[in-house]
């Protein structure tokens, strides 16, 4: 699954918090227009990995190559990298003091220098795409969790990122709201967006992923097509993890 043309390529990435080593020499490639799904137990480093890609965390060692440049280098302009990537968080992290429209237009206007009228046109178009055209003037706390998460996705997408990171975006949602968000992710995948998705939704991984990576002990322990990793895992750790998922009724 390698090749020099990978959009994102991580080599030997290490990240420790105090004495806890979360990423321990991790290697990972994400080719353009592919959807890579990260699975693994809580604390296996899925979120940390995504935060390192978006430079919300500084890595302790290793190379994070994005569009051919090592973005772990302190000489790089982190904001320029972040302007090319989007991240969606588990707990939405919408700005509660701004309307839905202002949440979506904040970065286009303040970072990308788009004029207000154009930014609002694009925001409304993006909100229509996520099915929230009638919530433009609403405040985040007037929306359901699923709607808030779709606003958060629109807020990222409106900046035309080349890579989207999803950090357990359905974990804080009621079951009946999960489908609307995962449906949106599937549409994004069909439109050719490059995606790196951390999730506990194995059904989603099976249907949408091009590749599934099982994280364990700070590394990618097993990777491959979803049918292989989720259906016939080779590694005992992967089998054990999937058994516990089945036992929890999540598969």
């Amino acid at each position: 699954m390698s090749g020099g043309a990978a959009l994102l390529s991580m080599r030997g990435v290490r990240k420790a918090f105090g004495r806890t080593v979360v990423l321990d020499g991790l290697d990972l490639d994400v080719d353009a227009h592919r959807c890579v799904v990260l699975i693994g137990a809580s604390g296996s480093g899925k979120s940390t990995l995504l935060r390192c890609v978006n430079l919300l965390e500084t890595v302790d060692d290793g190379v994070v190559e994005f569009e051919g440049r090592d973005i772990a280098d302190p000489r790089i302009d982190a904001d320029a990298v972040r302007a090319r990537t989007g991240i969606v968080f588990q707990s939405f992290n919408l700005f509660p003091h701004l309307s839905v429209l202002d949440n979506v237009t904040l970065a286009p206007r303040r970072v990308h220098g788009v004029a207000r009228a154009e930014a609002e046109d694009r925001a409304v178009a993006m909100l229509r795409r996520v099915g929230l055209q009638d919530k433009v003037r609403a405040r985040p706390d007037e929306l359901s969790g699923g709607q808030q998460q779709r606003v958060a996705i629109a807020r990222s997408l409106v900046n035309d990122p080349v890579l989207m990171l999803f950090d357990e975006v359905t974990s804080a949602l009621d079951p009946e709201l999960v489908a609307e968000v995962l449906g949106l992710l599937r549409e994004l995948r069909e439109d050719g967006m490059t995606m790196l998705v951390a999730t506990h939704e194995m059904g989603f991984a099976r249907r949408v992923a091009d590749e599934v990576c099982f994280l364990h002990g700070g590394r990618v322990l097993e990777r491959g097509a979803p049918q292989q990793v989720l259906g016939e895992p080779v590694e005992p750790r992967t089998q054990e993890f999937l058994r516990s998922i089945v036992a929890a009724g999540r598969m």
């Binding site: 604390g43 364990h216 002990g217 590394r219 990618v220 322990l221 590694e235």
Partner: peptide, 12 residues
């Protein structure tokens, strides 16, 4: 599950 990992037997 993370605890008690037997590092050596993990091939990758």
């Amino acid at each position: 599950q993370q605890r008690g990992r037997a590092g050596a037997d993990l091939s990758t």
